[in-house]
Design a protein around this nucleic acid. Structure first.
Lengths: 198, 198, 198, 198
DNA sequence: AATGAATGAGCCTTCATTCAT
DNA sequence: TATGAATGAAGGCTCATTCAT
């Protein structure tokens, strides 16, 4: 596959991303992709042979770097732990509320229907990565007295389950920005040393 | 609709429940239901005209009572608050891990794809009901010294988001009984008065 | 499947027979059958789900009785053995030359491509039945002095291989009525007692 | 077309032969050939523009010489007529039973579906050539007293129909080495002078 | 000569939905 | 009420064939 094909493959993935973000996973047909890309049916099959394959490629296309960026930002910045945690939560909030170009629905639909080996499950990897980042942040915060926490790992994991809970709630029930803030506030309050809470 | 029809409708819902619990929502066709019920295609349409309608009816069929039972049990029992909360969490755990006759997948699939008016969203109602129950339990616990908690409502809500997070995680990534226990333990630890934690 | 459906199934088989006799087996698509029957695509699938299934049904539909008739005619008639053998060969000739409503092409195409358990192979059964019939005829002829033959079974088998050879030759190279006559004559000459040959 | 092109054409035919011998004729697509040759789609079309053209070229590529060789061998050898006929039949038997690199299936599929002018029909030519060879052999045998036969041409033709019959039987029903031997034996017995048969 | 991306026709198959009985 | 045959739209997929490079 030459240089040109690589371009086209990228182009298809871009368009596919739009389609998945709009229709989720299960409702998307190869025809939808074909229409979105304005190419021929056969043309699409030269690059991808199923919506499954396409979706995994879309996912692979954008998650790794993002994670890496986040990790780098989290560990190398010289902001305080509190600032960084706040930043992280702000990102999560944006993600939870994001309307356009949001693969959450498609991702849930896909992974609900396709049981995947843990090792290769990108959701698992994202979750674990996030937990590690938060844990590190909390530890830093504890070290310099910003936070009080006896079990940073447990706390980080707990926070991520809350985030997951809000993500899915946002998809199925709906959630407001205020509700997210309130929730994060609740969690953060538990981290702040008692003397500062008063 | 006569007595007979009511019977038949119930029968169809029972069978439909089995189908949804096995295949989720999106993969279920009217034909699947017809086959499961061993009735005619036309016959099914006399009662339900789409899988959407059917699924909502299935949901309506079994959630209300269950919730009610739970509420009643929670408020009228004479067990301690701690026992009752433990019981509640045990139920949640069972639900999260349950393999057979589990509508979770179908429910997620349905409500991810169908945005529903908040008021009529059964997931919303279940969530809120659960929060109220837990809140009440915590308050009771605080009153009699079993628990320590400055914000019972926030704590209850937080717990439910964690539960939601674990539910969806169980569907998409997978989760072990141990992981659930650890998580519940973490939350409960935060509720126990400090002097008891040591 | 009710009375009506049985009618329709018969109707489809009739039409399918025409299609197979015109186009052979491999070139026939479900669409060809649909068009010939003037029914809907889905309609056809209610009765048959592949051209393979259809073709086997077409075959099953007309071979058994024919064979039986032949057997009965061959063994119960009161014509001489010579007359009956001549009749049999005349039938074979007609079959070899038949243009319309001829499943030979389709049959060859089908069984060349689909290896079938010997027991269930209709071609095998037809061949063996024919051999038995001829053998019986020859034996009768020998008994009453019409024929001379030391190995009726071998002779019958040989004759059938010749018939098979002419059938396939007719399909691939082409064969004339004269060529068939000449060939049958050659075989028959070997059966007639020497004194009559001169 | 330069020297180089001739080489490539030969190469393609070799590979095509393998494909046809494995898949018959009708199931072979241009893509199959392209894949087998590991050349480009467009590249193949420079040499052959359909599987029909390819198949005819494959046939033309290997039959003429073989026949010629056979003829030469049959007429120039100094073996006895009986030995030579036995050799010929042994070759036929090998051909009938041959599994690998066997164009029989493809050939039947092709010529069943494509009616060809007699003159240009390679099957016709092969058949006629074979008949001539056998006829000659029998005549030689009769001349030197090995055989007894009043109609060498008829006998040769008959033998070839039997061979054809066994070939197609081998494709559609299946045939054993023993069945072939038995059949050849039957035919040969008819050629041996009576005094030798006892 | 050679490549291989691209096209679009064409077949397969499944379903929701209707309707005569 | 209940049946189930029938329809036709829709999506999946594969190929022969072309064409710009």
């Amino acid at each position: 596959m030459g240089e040109k094909s690589v371009q086209k493959k990228k182009y298809i993935l871009e368009k596919a991303r739009e389609v998945f973000s709009e229709k989720g996973f299960k409702d998307v047909t190869m025809k939808d992709i074909v229409d979105a890309c304005e190419i021929s049916r056969g043309g699409l099959y030269l690059y991808f042979s199923s919506t499954e394959e396409l979706f995994l490629a879309v996912l692979a296309d954008d998650t790794p770097e993002d994670d890496e960026e986040a990790v780098v930002a989290a560990l190398s910045g010289d902001a305080t732990a509190g600032d960084m945690l706040a930043l992280f939560l702000k990102e999560q909030k944006k993600e939870i509320l994001r309307k356009k170009n949001n693969l959450t629905t498609a991702t849930y639909e896909y992974f609900i229907a396709h049981k995947v080996e843990e090792r290769q499950n990108p959701l698992k990897n994202q979750f674990d990565t996030a937990v590690r980042i938060i844990e590190k942040l909390i530890e830093n915060g504890v070290d310099n007295g910003e936070f009080y926490c006896e079990n940073p790992h447990g706390c980080a994991r707990n926070l991520m389950y809350v985030v997951e809970g809000m993500k899915i709630t946002s998809q199925t029930i709906g959630i407001t920005a205020e509700a997210i803030d309130k929730e994060f506030m609740y969690v953060l309050t538990g981290l702040v040393p008692d003397e500062l809470n008063n």
